[in-house]
Design a protein around this nucleic acid. Structure first.
Lengths: 113, 113
DNA sequence: GAGACTACTTTGTGATACAATATAGCTGTC
DNA sequence: GACAGCTATATTGTATCACAAAGTAGTCTC
């Protein structure tokens, strides 16, 4: 299980990435994230996050009927959202670069006693 | 610059990793993190975090005089801290695994139009 | 009509990075 | 000896965000 604190900030970028692949709706996003190995992301996390993204102009929402079940709110990435996704990927690379360098050093200490 | 939200949860594990390499004190930890590429971590972040770790039993503190400047509070990793570090590394690997799979898929869409 | 699955919303809570501020010792310079 | 600048720690208040919980509502199967 990934602790919720570790997901902070990451989830927003990842949802942008999921939407970029193909416009989709909240419920399916949650399932995709689970399939990618994020674990179960609560509805109370997904939906407020999508509303934030819509309000900030990173995504555009469109209501469509579902063949089975209630209506779906499909989200598509805007240009602004594409820029945010690029910024996230850069920050994420910066973070993992720093962490990986540090953890590599931590490892090294074991090997040379 | 790494946004503060992305650091959440990560910093605690990384500080444990720094301390594991060699017992050290807050001020130097901040400098080491900056050197690894984390950017400048505010004092208001480092010191409360170290106090939390001490209170939780992950680290042990010892006050030592400095050759130059005020006293330093050296922190050393406890067994409990070592376990927490291992747990962090596992969670971190889980997270980066999921994100990397997702971002790889996002990339792939570009290549095959 | 009861349960299960789909699908979205809202409210309140907890964790945590950070800005700002305070304190204090040491060094060097003018 | 006053002042700047670096070292070193602590505290207070704030903003952000993931989540639990509860609610609403549609479809399907038994």
């Amino acid at each position: 299980m990934i602790p919720s604190q570790l997901l902070k900030g990451t989830l927003e970028g990842c949802i942008l990435a999921v939407i970029r692949k193909k416009p989709t709706y909240g419920y399916e996003i949650a399932q995709q994230l689970a399939a990618y190995g994020f674990g179960r992301i609560a509805e109370g996390t997904i939906y407020p996050l999508l509303l934030r993204l819509e309000k900030s102009g990173a995504v555009r929402a469109e209501l469509r009927p579902s063949e089975l079940g209630p209506n779906r709110k499909y989200y598509a990435l805007t240009d602004r959202g594409g820029e945010e996704l690029a910024a996230f990927m850069a920050s994420y690379a910066e973070l993992t670069g720093a962490v990986d360098r540090l953890l590599a050093d931590t490892q090294r200490e074991d090997e040379e006693p």
